[in-house]
Simulated assay, not measured.
Amino acid sequence: MAPRLLSCFRNKHAGGCSHHDEGCGASSEESAAGAREAAGEGPVLVEMFTSQGCATSPAADLVLSRLGRGDFQLEVPVVLLAFHVDYWDYVGWKDPFGSSQWTVRQKAYVEALGLDTLFTPQVVVQGQAHLEGNDDNALISAITSAPRFPAPTFQATFNKPTPTSLEVTLVGALRTKVDNLGVDVMVALYETGLVTDCPRGENKGRVLSNDYVVRKLEKLCTVKDYPAKKTMSGTATFSLWDTFNSSRCGMAVFVQNSSHQIFGSQNFQLPDDL
C-alpha cells in the first residue's frame, strides 16, 4: 500500500518482562562504533512492517522470504523480522498476525527517523534506514551499506514450564561495550511458513504466505556500564499461541537503544521437540 498519512502517536514501545542474573549495560553510538571497528562482522537486522490488509504488502512479504532463502546471494548475514501492524484492519480483513504492539513499534521509528507518516510495507534496516518494502534493489543496497556490529555470543536453553508457555534462558556476552546511556536486550519469537486464505479486504481471494512473523517480543534486560566481553544471563518467558509448532519457529536477540537503533543481533532456531 502506497505511503499514506496516518495519525502518529508518541508513546514508546515498553518491551516485555525481563529477568537477568547479572547487571547488564548499555551502548552509546560512540562506544558501539568503537567495537564495530574491532569486530563488526555481525548480521544486519531487517524489520518489515506489513499487513495482510494492504494490497502491496504481499509482494514485499515475498521479498523478505526470498531474502531469507538466500536468493539475493548477499555476503552480509541478516536477521529478519516481520511485524504485522493492525491499522489496516478496518479495510475489510483483520490480519490474524496483526498487533497494536507492532504498530506502536513502527510509530516509534516514525518519530526516531523524523518521518511524517506510517505506511506499509516499510522496511527498517539496523534501526537507522528505512525504505519501501517491495523495492528489492533498494533493500539490498541498504543492507550492504548498513553499519555492522559484533554479534552477541548467547547460548540458549529452552524449556516449557507449562503447555502454553516457553522459557528461554540466554547466557553470553554482548560483544559491544556498554556505557551509561543504556540499551535494551530484546528477544523476538517468530514463525515461518504461514499460509492464509484471505476472503475479504484488498487481498480478497488471494492465498497469502508469510515468513519471519513476529508472534512475541520480550525485553530480556536493560543494560548499562557493561564490558563488551563480560558474560551476562537472563530469562524471557513467552505465552504461546494455540497453533505453536517449534519446528516452524525461530528466535532473534537484538540490542537497541532508546531510539531503536540496533547495535548487534543474533538468530536461533528452536528445537523441533519442544
Rank of each mutant, 00 (worst) to 15 (best):
A35G: 12
P150C: 05
E41K: 11
A236G: 03
V214I: 07
R69Y: 02
P150D: 10
W88V: 08
L220H: 04
S51A: 08
P161K: 07
V125C: 08
S239L: 12
P152S: 09
Y90P: 13
T56I: 02
M186F: 02
P147V: 04
G127V: 02
A138E: 13
K229A: 11
D71Q: 14
D197Y: 13
H20Q: 09
V78F: 10
V213F: 00
K229W: 01
Q101F: 08
T237L: 14
S141P: 00
F49S: 04
E191D: 08
L74F: 07
S259Q: 14
T164Y: 09
N210A: 14
E218G: 01
L217C: 03
K230E: 15
D272Y: 11
L5W: 05
A33P: 00
T153D: 07
V44K: 07
F83A: 02
L5V: 04
V110Y: 09
V255I: 15
S209Y: 08
Q155V: 03
G234P: 07
P58A: 10
L220Y: 01
Q73V: 07
D136I: 09
A236P: 02
N245V: 07
G25Q: 11
A138K: 12
S18P: 09
I140H: 03
L270R: 03
L170N: 06
V110W: 05
L113G: 04
D116P: 00
E191T: 13
F149Y: 15
N180A: 13
S259K: 14
Q269L: 13
V195F: 04
N180H: 04
F119N: 05
L189I: 04
T157L: 08
V187T: 09
F244V: 08
V123Q: 00
N210T: 11
A146E: 08
Q101Y: 08
S51W: 01
C249K: 05
R248L: 13
L80S: 10
L181D: 06
S258R: 14
L240P: 10
K224L: 03
H260S: 15
K12L: 03
V195I: 15
V44N: 05
G133Q: 00
T231N: 07
E111W: 10
W102K: 02
T196W: 12
Y212T: 01
Q266E: 12
P58Q: 11
P43E: 12
G182F: 10
A129G: 01
S239G: 13
R248Q: 13
A228N: 01
V213L: 00
L220E: 01
Y109F: 12
N267V: 09
V223P: 03
D135C: 01
Y226P: 00
F244I: 06
H84G: 05
Y212C: 02
G205E: 10
G25I: 06
F119K: 06
K160R: 15
F119Q: 06
L6W: 14
I140C: 10
T117H: 08
G205M: 08
K12C: 02
H20N: 14
E202W: 01
A146I: 04
L131N: 06
C249R: 04
M48I: 13
S31M: 11
A252P: 05
L80Y: 12
R248D: 14
P147T: 09
K216Q: 15
L270H: 04
G127T: 07
L131G: 09
H19V: 13
T162M: 03
D272L: 12
P152K: 05
D61E: 15
V85D: 03
V255L: 15
S141H: 11
A108R: 02
C221G: 03
I140R: 12
P150K: 06
